[in-house]
């Protein structure tokens, strides 16, 4: 896993999906406690660029980072 998410915080605003350069983000079929479909990352497509972290207003994403 490259990016950890906190689905409970997601408000499904869609900014991460719109900005993801690899089309790696979709929204879950399930809803969180607030009634939103939280963002889900396709780890195979994800390149850990951190753009989702940068644009997310709700602190959903944690880019784990790794050594070369």
């Amino acid at each position: 896993m490259k990016v950890e998410t906190k689905p409970a915080r997601c408000k499904e605003c869609g900014l991460c999906k719109a900005n993801c350069p690899k089309g790696a983000i979709s929204f879950s079929e399930h809803t969180n406690a607030a009634g939103y479909h939280p963002a889900v990352i396709n780890d195979e497509l994800c390149i850990a660029c951190g753009i989702c972290y940068t644009v997310c207003p709700d602190g959903v994403f944690h880019v784990l980072g790794k050594e070369a």
Partner: peptide, 8 residues
């Protein structure tokens, strides 16, 4: 590839 940790 190295990636940077980004954490709130």
């Amino acid at each position: 590839m190295a990636t940077k940790e980004r954490k709130v």
